[in-house]
């Protein structure tokens, strides 16, 4: 489903205040449909750059990234937008739309896809109920707790039934209780058939999952195990 082929990403000198920095070096791996993959590594290992490439937000300096056999380097803006719509993203800083209410944050994703008013009015309350935010539909994100904001981010990522979920440090700002709740939700989504890519440096979570682990160090893949552990 997602394939990295000899991908290298070098940021020019003006980005890194000095010499050019290679954040990914000769990275090759493939993620199959329905897989649950944890990508682990320290901060600066290149995890976020990897996800930005899957979303077509950045091009590799060398090599190619494929999404469903489509080379993102040659995809036009329409194809890139369609790819982004088929991926649900969850971030450590939630990336919610602060000027929109809880309801509008979720509805926005369906509006972007051009879904009709009737479907949006039916689907959004259902998803919000599923994650326990049905009483906060008219609240703004800043009026929610950290855990609630992350649940809203998950609701937003799920509402369009995406084929792929990218969770970039989704538990980074959460307490252990909320962290496990988020991971439990991701497992459930994966069981329902979605591909889940989890980027984290939380040892406990990765070890408990017992799923495929790709380990990045200094922009290189040093380990890729089907039932891996967090080892850095």
């Amino acid at each position: 489903m997602i394939k990295f082929e000899k991908v290298t990403k070098i940021y020019p000198a003006h980005f890194s205040n000095g010499s050019p920095t290679a954040v990914l070096q000769d990275v090759s791996f493939e993620i199959k449909e329905g897989e649950f993959v944890s990508i682990v590594g320290k901060s600066g290992a290149g995890k976020t750059t990897l996800t930005r490439m899957i979303l077509g937000l950045e091009d590799p300096t060398h090599g190619d990234v494929f999404f469903k056999n489509k080379n993102l380097r040659t995809a036009d803006s329409f194809e890139i937008q369609n790819i982004r719509r088929s991926i649900g993203c969850i971030y450590q800083d939630y990336k919610l739309l602060p000027a929109k209410t809880v309801y509008e944050n979720v509805a926005y994703i369906m509006e972007v896809e051009g879904k009709g008013y009737g479907k949006i009015e039916k689907e959004v309350p259902r998803v919000l109920e599923l994650i326990g935010l049905e009483d906060k539909m008219e609240n703004f994100p800043k009026e929610l707790s950290g855990g609630e904001q992350q649940r809203l981010a998950i609701a937003r990522a799920l509402v369009n039934n995406p084929k792929v979920i990218i969770a970039d440090e989704p538990t980074g700002n959460l307490d252990p209780y909320n962290s496990y709740e988020v991971i439990y939700m991701l497992e459930k989504i994966n069981k329902a058939g979605a591909t889940v890519i989890l980027l984290t440096h939380d040892r406990e979570i990765v070890n408990k999952l017992g799923k495929r682990v790709v380990t990045l160090v200094g922009g290189r893949i040093i380990r890729d195990e089907a039932e891996g552990k967090f080892m850095l």
Partner: peptide, 8 residues
């Protein structure tokens, strides 16, 4: 964020 979710 709007770009990430695929808005035109």
């Amino acid at each position: 964020t709007m770009r990430i979710v695929g808005a035109t």
